[in-house]
Simulated scan of single mutants.
Amino acid sequence: MALQSERSLDPTDWKILRELQQDARLSYNELGRRVGLSSPAAAERVRKLEDAGIIMSYGAQIDVAKVGLPLLVFIQLRCAPDRCLFKTSNAGKFPEILEMHKLSGSHCALLKVALSSMEHLEAFNERLSVHGEQITNVATSTLFRQQVIDWEEPGINLRPSIQPGWNER
Rank of each mutant, 00 (worst) to 15 (best):
H131A: 05
S116M: 04
S116A: 08
S106F: 07
E168L: 13
I97A: 09
A43P: 03
Q134E: 04
E6C: 15
H120K: 07
T12I: 15
T12R: 11
L85A: 03
P95R: 03
P164A: 02
P70D: 05
S39T: 05
L3T: 10
I16W: 01
L71A: 06
G36K: 01
K48V: 02
P11L: 13
S141K: 13
M56H: 14
R33W: 15
E19V: 04
I149V: 14
R33T: 04
S104I: 06
D23G: 08
S38I: 06
T140E: 15
V73P: 01
G32I: 02
E168C: 10
N125Q: 13
D82G: 08
K112E: 04
G36V: 08
L17A: 06
H101M: 15
A42N: 09
P160Q: 14
D63W: 06
P40W: 12
T88A: 14
L9S: 04
P40D: 11
F144N: 12
N157D: 08
P40K: 14
S89Y: 15
A91I: 00
T88F: 14
T88G: 08
Q146H: 13
F94E: 02
N125D: 11
E96P: 01
A123D: 15
L143A: 10
A80F: 15
L128Y: 15
R47W: 05
V113N: 03
L158E: 11
K112I: 08
R127G: 10
L128D: 03
L49T: 01
I97Q: 08
D23C: 10
L3I: 08
A24T: 00
S129K: 11
I55A: 10
R34N: 00
W151T: 05
C79V: 03
I162R: 13
T140H: 10
A24I: 02
T12S: 13
D82K: 06
I16A: 06
G59T: 06
F86Y: 12
H101C: 15
G53V: 04
D82P: 00
N125I: 07
T136N: 01
Q4V: 12
E44Q: 13
V148P: 00
E96G: 04
S116P: 05
E19C: 14
V148H: 03
S57T: 10
Q61W: 10
V73E: 08
